[in-house]
Design a protein around this nucleic acid. Structure first.
Length: 486
RNA sequence: UCCUCCUUAGCUCAGUUGGUUAGAGCACAUCACUGUUAAUGAUGGGGUCCUCCGUUCAAGUCGGAGAGGGGGAGCCA
């Protein structure tokens, strides 16, 4: 058997590290640095901590030592000893070093120094080997695991909703077309339009922009379901918080109202944070100090004040602020920020909250996550439940958005409209073809119940927990407009 | 899609009012040293100054267009 190695994380993090002293171990990994022709910092991705392999002077062939370069992979056999140096408690005194894969030091792009995130973004296939991305992607993994754990523990069913859909009525954004028709010379109908009856599915199809509608169908049988999968938006968005391909978590719960929905979302977010704080302490500590270092470069007024771990702890220990849209508008109108005309966009009841408004509420006014409910019906989707007893012209829906510091909208959700007549009226108003949505309306025809759900952008959650400011740095291979490398 | 900033060595960056042969640190090579922690010291190699067009006796530097990237906005998760 080839693989009898010990993982570096395990080697360095035993309850009593020194108990390993004296035992022979095999470690494998990639060279981070090779100092003084003796000391190899070896990393295998299990942790940011490197194990120091000592190749004592004169005990190894010059030919082997030459090949120990940054990025090379090797297998080291040796004895765990207490370190004579200061950077580590134990190290491995090598008896045998085998180069598994050479790495031409002149051509290997990563060097033992700080690289810019922009540079690493263009070397996305190698950036996993850096401390920053090592930490980010280990945390991303933990978050994904915690998502399933949270819902599984609460008896939710993980529903796999389709990636390819024929529904184009969701209105969640521009869609990517899925077709096997030739780009040139596709059959056309009498009106001169492309004839999709000739296409693979016999109709026009797209990549999903949301699993919600299918999720609702599941919730009408299993009560509690969630989806967690890739989602696609063909919007020409070039920002630090949008991707063309991203992962979204969408729970849908029968018999829940808006308040239940908010409670679920808040518990969910707190569980994710709590899980990472318990299981990724080293990685969080690394990212925390990395951010602190970066903050030092910023002018005082741009500093956030709270460190990453402090911020997460604060969110965990405090309730999210819950306000209505109408209250949010009042807060904005009464703010000195508004009175000094510092907002670019005007504030009045009926507007969609702009980024600057959300930032003010979250970062200036409340200084913590805020849940805004009861948005005007006119700016929200057709499936959201109309609130009863609204003033005419000021109809609102049972929607809720969770706004997070530095990220903006991290969750969007609502109680759904379960009353068939109201739903149909709303769809007609918004020119959504009822015939195509007949399958969806069946949920309201046969045993309709109050229900609610939300969508959480997974990458935005990873951003929030890692403190990474650009969403392209929290997904392995980012897909954004004009960019699909790898 | 709009606004704005940026593009000089493999990487991070400096480059004066336009003026001789474009610099530094890191990386790389050679040598020295050897318990280092991004080791250190010496020496050396390394440039399409993003591309094209223009102004000028002279352009890395000024002007225009284009490409790529960053930040912000819109749309949203």
């Amino acid at each position: 058997m080839f693989n009898q190695r010990v993982k570096i994380k395990q080697l360095l993090s035993g309850t009593d590290v020194k108990s390993a002293v004296g035992s022979e171990v095999v470690v494998m990994g990639w060279v981070r640095t090779f100092r003084n022709n003796q000391f190899i910092a070896l990393n295998d991705g299990s942790t940011n901590n490197n194990v120091q392999i000592v190749a004592s002077l004169g005990e190894f062939d010059e030919a082997i030592l030459k090949r120990i370069t940054t990025g090379a992979s090797l297998k080291a056999t040796g004895v765990v000893v207490e370190s004579l140096g200061k950077g580590q408690t134990v190290e491995v005194k090598a008896t045998k070093i085998e180069i598994l894969g050479d790495s031409d030091a002149e051509k290997y792009p990563l060097q033992p120094k700080k690289h810019s995130l922009e540079f690493l973004r263009e070397k996305a296939h190698l950036r996993f080997r850096t401390n920053t991305f090592g930490s980010v992607f280990r945390i991303r993994h933990s978050l994904a695991f915690a998502v399933h754990q949270f819902f599984n523990d609460r008896g939710f069913l993980y529903l796999h909703t389709p990636i390819i859909t024929s529904s184009d009525a969701e209105g969640a954004g521009e869609m990517f077309r899925v077709t096997t028709l030739p780009l040139e010379g596709a059959a056309k109908n009498e009106a001169g339009e492309i004839d999709f009856t000739e296409d693979f599915f016999g109709k026009s199809t797209n990549l999903t922009v949301s699993g919600q509608l299918e999720g609702e169908l599941g919730a009408m049988a299993f009560s509690d379901i969630y989806t967690f999968g890739p989602t696609f938006r063909a919007e020409n968005s070039n920002t630090t918080r949008h991707l063309a391909e991203f992962w979204m978590i969408e729970p849908e719960v029968a018999f829940n109202d808006l308040e239940d929905n908010m409670n679920l979302a808040e518990d969910f977010i707190k569980h994710l944070i709590d899980y990472v704080m318990k299981h990724n302490q080293d990685d969080l500590a690394f990212l925390d100090s990395r951010l602190a270092e970066e903050e030092k470069q910023l002018p005082t007024e741009k500093r956030s004040g709270l460190g990453l771990v402090e911020k997460l702890k604060f969110v965990l220990e405090n309730g999210f602020e819950r306000i209505t849209y109408t209250e949010a508008i009042d807060i904005l109108l009464n703010s000195s920020h508004y009175k000094k005309k510092k907002f670019t966009y005007d504030v009045k009841w009926g507007i969609d909250l702009q980024s600057e408004h959300e930032r003010y509420l979250v970062e200036q006014h409340f200084k913590k996550p805020v849940i805004v409910t009861g948005y005007p019906a006119a700016i929200k989707a057709f499936y959201m439940r109309m609130n009863d007893g609204c003033e005419v012209g000021k109809e609102t829906v049972a929607a809720m958005d969770i706004l997070a510091p530095g990220i903006g909208e991290i969750v969007g959700g609502s109680q759904r409209e379960e009353r068939l007549d109201k739903l149909e009226a709303r769809m007609n108003e918004m020119h959504i073809p009822l015939a195509e949505m007949s399958y969806y309306l069946d949920t309201r025809r046969f045993g309709s119940v109050p229900h609610a759900g939300f969508g959480l952008g997974f990458e935005r959650m990873v951003q929030f927990v890692t403190g990474m400011t650009n969403i392209r740095d929290v997904i392995a291979f980012a897909r954004t407009p004009k960019n699909c490398e790898y």
